[in-house]
Amino acid sequence: MTMFPKLDPILHSELRLAVMSILIGVDEADFTYLKKQTGATSGNLSVQIDKLMAAGYITVEKGFKGKVPHTTCKITTTGQDAFNKYVESLKEYLSASK
């Protein structure tokens, strides 16, 4: 099994990549939706979202819907660029290995 140390380490993680793959196609998504789509635990998802936010790939808005806490995530332009670059790198690697 080949690993990719040179790929963007922020994106080259299963859960973070899943979150970015969801956010790339939507205006914004809330925490519950991301949790449902990825099947992740709340704790793990929170940690990975914080890492993506720290990298500047997503913005996170925390608020309340009524009395319930509500977290919304949105991909940034930096995040979009990084995601596109990551996908291009993957494609190049795959075509080179054929």
């Binding site: 080259h12 793959s21 099947g39």
Partner: peptide, 25 residues
């Protein structure tokens, strides 16, 4: 994507593309 404790594991290029494709779909 399956629930597992390995959600933060590193993947191969094919696994990454498959995951992106699955999430988008």
């Amino acid at each position: 994507m399956e629930k597992s404790n390995e959600q933060n594991k590193e993947m191969t290029a094919q696994e990454s593309l498959d995951l992106i494709s699955e999430m988008l779909n």
